[in-house]
Amino acid sequence: TEEFVRLWREAVRHNQTLHWNGTDFIPGDEWAEEFARREEEKL
């Protein structure tokens, strides 16, 4: 979602874990980066 992408970019900028829907998205984590890339492509 647009909100997820916005929060993810913020988390990456501050190198912080994003807690989203009970899942931890960690900047630099391969799975999280791939998920975020797919979400961005949907926008």
Rank of each mutant, 00 (worst) to 15 (best):
W31M: 08
H14Q: 15
R37A: 10
D24F: 10
H19G: 03
A11G: 00
E10C: 14
V5E: 07
K42T: 06
W8I: 04
E34R: 08
E10S: 01
T23N: 13
R9A: 12
T23K: 15
R6D: 13
E10L: 06
H19P: 03
V5G: 03
E41R: 13
E40D: 05
E41G: 09
V5K: 06
T1H: 12
R13Q: 14
A36R: 01
F4I: 00
F25E: 00
W8C: 13
T1L: 14
E10P: 00
V5M: 13
A11E: 00
L18P: 01
N21T: 04
E30P: 15
E3R: 07
A36Q: 02
F4M: 01
A32P: 01
A32E: 01
L18D: 00
V5A: 04
E10G: 00
E39C: 15
R37L: 09
E41K: 13
P27W: 02
E34C: 14
L7W: 04
R6T: 08
E2S: 11
L18T: 02
A36S: 03
L18A: 03
G22R: 01
E30T: 13
T23H: 14
G28R: 03
Q16K: 14
R38L: 13
E30S: 13
G22K: 04
L43W: 10
E39I: 15
R38T: 10
H14M: 15
Q16W: 10
E2F: 09
T17K: 11
I26F: 10
A32D: 02
K42A: 08
A11Q: 01
T23A: 12
F25M: 06
N15P: 00
E40R: 07
I26S: 11
E3Y: 06
R13M: 15
G28Q: 02
L7G: 05
E10K: 04
D29Q: 09
N15Q: 11
L7A: 13
D29W: 03
T1E: 09
F25G: 00
E10Q: 06
L43K: 04
E40G: 07
L7K: 11
K42S: 07
A11P: 00
E34P: 00
G22W: 03
T1Y: 12
L18M: 08
T17A: 12
A32Y: 04
A11M: 02
G28K: 03
T17W: 07
D24W: 10
L43N: 04
A36D: 01
A11T: 01
K42Q: 07
E3C: 15
Q16N: 10
G28T: 03
T23P: 01
G28F: 03
W20D: 01
A36W: 08
F35M: 08
V12H: 04
N21L: 12
W20E: 01
K42E: 05
V12F: 02
D24Q: 09
G28H: 03
F4H: 00
L43Y: 09
G22D: 09
A36Y: 08
W8V: 06
W31I: 07
F35Q: 06
G22Y: 03
R38Y: 10
E40T: 11
